Simulated scan of single mutants.
Amino acid sequence: MSRKSNTEQRRKEIVFALLSVMAEHGYEKATILAIARQAGLAPGLIHYHFKSKGEILLYLVKLLAGLSRIRYEEMAAAASTPQDKLLAYINARLAKGEGALPEAVSAWVVIGAEAVRQPEVRAVFQEAIAAELELIQALLTACLRDQKKRIDHVPELAAGLLAFMEGAFQLASAAGDIMPQGYAAATARAFIETSLTAQEPV
């Protein structure tokens, strides 16, 4: 294995350590020492791979966005219709089961809060959100065209679905014990099916 591969693997270990600490204790308490302990590394090694905790956080945003996209692509691989692909996306983002990372949900909520406070985090977070919106719009457009319906309201529908998902992540992190089990994916599917049905024919 090359040195570059070893370095990249170590960086991922550090980033996942930040994810674990942040999901449990928040960003402020995710110190370099706490990250090092979680990763089983000396603090000096953290500084060797990253200039700061903020740099680890930026890497984490991109990593989580990438993992989310990979889970969708794996679930959508067997999809044969636009509707199946859209449902695969909803399940990839909201359903539990293989490939789900509960800690990532809490970490993503913390990242959203840090995006409000830190311009560098906001820029990377907005890139991830823009990519999600673009994907949702493409999936909705394909569904509506397949059903020979108008696509005028796709941007609003996409934004509504994304807003629902982000809200579901917040509730899963802060009030998961009182929310109905499995409600998020089921509700998102119902919202989309109703919204698609309501669109006018071409």
Rank of each mutant, 00 (worst) to 15 (best):
Y89L: 13
I90G: 03
N91Y: 05
A92I: 01
A92V: 05
L94W: 04
L94Y: 07
K96Y: 03
K96T: 14
G97D: 12
E98L: 14
G99E: 07
G99R: 07
G99S: 11
A100L: 12
A100S: 15
A100P: 01
L101S: 07
P102H: 09
P102K: 12
A104K: 01
A104Y: 01
S106N: 11
S106Y: 01
A107R: 06
A107L: 08
W108H: 11
W108E: 07
I111V: 11
I111M: 04
I111K: 04
I111W: 00
I111P: 01
G112W: 06
A113H: 10
A115Q: 03
V116Y: 04
V116C: 03
R117D: 13
Q118N: 15
E120G: 03
V121Q: 05
R122E: 11
R122V: 02
R122T: 05
A123C: 07
A123S: 13
F125E: 12
F125L: 10
E127T: 13
E127C: 11
E127R: 13
A128V: 05
A128S: 14
A128N: 03
A128T: 05
I129E: 13
A130Y: 01
A131P: 00
A131M: 01
E132W: 00
E132F: 00
E132S: 09
L133K: 08
L135N: 03
I136M: 07
A138W: 00
L139M: 09
T141F: 02
C143G: 02
C143Y: 03
L144R: 02
L144S: 04
R145G: 06
D146R: 05
D146I: 02
Q147T: 06
K148E: 13
K148N: 13
K149N: 10
I151P: 00
I151D: 06
D152C: 06
D152I: 08
H153M: 14
H153E: 15
V154P: 01
E156N: 05
E156K: 06
E156C: 00
A158G: 10
A159K: 07
A159D: 06
G160T: 12
G160H: 03
G160K: 02
L161T: 02
L162H: 12
A163D: 09
A163V: 02
F164D: 14
F164W: 08
E166C: 00
G167L: 04
G167E: 04
G167Q: 06
G167D: 05
F169H: 09
F169T: 04
Q170C: 11
Q170H: 13
Q170N: 08
A172D: 14
A172P: 02
A172W: 05
A174D: 14
A175D: 11
A175K: 14
G176T: 07
G176Y: 05
M179S: 12
M179R: 14
M179K: 12
P180L: 11
P180M: 10
P180S: 11
Q181V: 13
Y183V: 15
A184P: 06
A184D: 15
A185K: 04
A190N: 09
I192T: 15
E193M: 10
E193W: 00
T194I: 08
T194R: 14
S195N: 12
S195R: 09
T197M: 11
A198K: 01
